[in-house]
Write a protein that binds this DNA or RNA. Structure first.
Lengths: 345, 345
DNA sequence: CTGAAAGCGCTTACAG
DNA sequence: CTGAAAGCGCTTACAG
């Protein structure tokens, strides 16, 4: 089936009439080689259809250029956007990173990490699954491979994290809703063990209290971090005795679920209930009503994470500063106009 | 930083008091080794934190177990679901495949494919970008690496493809809409150079004609394959003199865009305009109105593609039969009730 | 620039 | 089961 059985650097050398070393140097772009002999070599490479065996090179050099991105849910548009953003940043550096999905499953994550390790990854970006144990990354840390965590903070870990300013995002949302006249507020979705939720909720709650909302008028309901989760959270919230009139959602996916659940109850986001999302996925802007949400500048977050591992790889260190990206509230239509009075619904 | 500098098979041998060969055999699960010596070796491996160097093994064996999945748009939920489905199938076979996104960019795709080749991929599944040139995959084919294309068919290519029965899907949609009483129909979204669109449109149009719709009452509008595309297609369609009253959309993303554009015009899917999607992404079922769409059984498609490459790898062949997955129409709410008369709107 | 040589970490016969 | 040996395709000093 194969036209020829593996053409190697030696074949190229023969073909170009130079030595093996010379070919190797050309391959590495060394400037020790005269332009015309380099050209000869390149021609031979093109003619023979030679393919560089990166594995062999890595073995000899004892280093690789493979970078892995381990994502807990590629099916969540936010993480898909994030992955694509990181990929773009790596591309600019001439690197093709590999993406792997862990489906929010720690066992699967272990397998993926083991594979990355055996494959000789030189760097790793990970958005860890829930319940990731501290030991999960130990092997990789021991091997001295740079790791940066993105979005989710690992408990008891000194790994650098790149994440948005979740606390401030929560605060911005609370402020916005209260200014709109809402007095009974909810935080919907997400699991309590997620650092992302703790931070967003903290900013939200603190600001509510500061602006005069009483503790019992701040409702927090846990749930899945997707549409389905949003739907059930909204229903649970509205079935309360004194239901909230507005909510900050754990993320945009939850917010979409909330809006769908509203519609199923014959209610309308904005008109009957104010909803704010978090992330600002591309869909948010085009939804009806357009979703008011906390933008985390996904592309920038991805870029930062990529540059951070790249820098760690160059400087051969496994430490780096945490990076907290700024957030902005994108005010659109899902919160409706200002309420005359935050009275009973 | 590293606890020790690379423990190798030799260290394990020393630690366990056996030979290098024995360690290698244990690593490969050979049954030539007595259980108790295998146990000794395994213990040494665990104690030292040894990590298998797959690159070195691959070099020696002249074969690898890395499989690449090259996807043109991971940001499209359908393809994310598809990738995750394939990943699951590979996982069952003990393989961790690598995903790469090409962002619908042929240049990027070339880079990704080159990287996969250099990395020594043993198999490839590709959902190619638009305008993929036949030469793009030549190098990989020449190397004898099994490739299967998924969803999109490459022009003038003999590579096996795994895809849903697009023609039949288009036909089912047309039939459904016509039974509902619609007489002016549209096919919205997608680019004419996409095999997927050609097939879906063909099934749609043929069935329309067969069921008595005249050619001039079948409108086909090209557009992006995402929400934005759906929005502009719908607007273009409704701005016609004799606008259609129903549409089959290129895919679910386009369908969501169509429904959003309707709402922006003060219209409602189902009540004012019937819309059918294609793919049946998870979101379709939960949308309001729930989207009537052609289900392609995404998970099954992914599984088939995975099993096909796996089989090709085992049998060392680069040929395989095309596989066309069956489709079913999921009737939900987005087409509304039967129209009394397909009259002027 | 070139050529000979060693070595990266593994696997694979092969003789014992 | 073991041990010695060769070799996968590359890179890296090193002497010329």
């Amino acid at each position: 089936m194969n036209t020829r059985d593996k053409t190697t650097i030696l074949d190229i050398a023969r073909e170009a009439g130079v030595s093996k070393s010379t070919v190797s140097l050309v391959l590495q772009g060394s400037d020790l080689i005269r332009p015309d002999t380099a050209a000869k070599v390149r021609k031979a490479i093109a003619d023979t259809g030679y393919v560089y065996n990166r594995g062999a090179a890595n073995l000899r050099k004892a280093q690789s250029n493979v970078i892995g991105m381990v994502i807990h849910d590629l099916t969540n548009p936010f993480y898909a956007e994030l992955a694509v953003g990181m990929e773009r940043a790596f591309q600019a550096a001439g690197i093709v990173p590999f993406i792997a999905n862990t489906a929010e499953n720690p066992i699967r994550q272990d397998q993926v990490l083991k594979s990355m390790l055996e494959q000789g990854a030189a760097g790793l970006i990970i958005a860890p699954t829930r319940n990731t144990q501290p030991e999960a990354l130990r092997r990789i840390e021991q091997a001295g491979i740079p790791i940066v965590t993105i979005m989710r903070r690992l408990p008891e870990s000194r790994l650098p994290v790149v994440a948005p300013d979740n606390v401030r995002g929560g605060a911005l949302a609370a402020e916005h809703l209260i200014k709109k006249g809402h007095r009974r507020l909810a935080f919907l979705g997400g699991h309590a063990d997620l650092s992302v939720r703790r931070e967003r909720l903290q900013g939200f709650r603190d600001t509510c209290l500061k602006l005069g909302i009483s503790e019992q008028d701040i409702l927090a309901i846990e749930g899945e971090t997707n549409r389905i989760g949003g739907m059930s959270c909204l229903n649970e919230a509205l079935d309360r005795d004194e239901p909230p009139t507005a909510a900050l959602c754990f993320n945009d996916a939850v917010a979409f679920g909330v809006m769908i659940a509203l519609r199923k109850r014959g209610l309308e986001a904005a008109r009957d209930f104010a909803v704010v999302g978090f992330d600002d996925v591309v869909e948010a802007e085009h939804y009806v009503p357009a979703l008011t949400t906390v933008s985390v500048d996904t592309a920038n977050l991805g870029e930062r994470a990529a540059h951070t591992v790249l820098r760690m790889m160059q400087t051969r260190t496994t430490r780096a500063e945490d990076q907290i990206g700024s957030v902005t509230l994108m005010v659109r239509d899902s919160c409706g106009p200002i309420r005359t009075m935050g009275g009973v619904q």
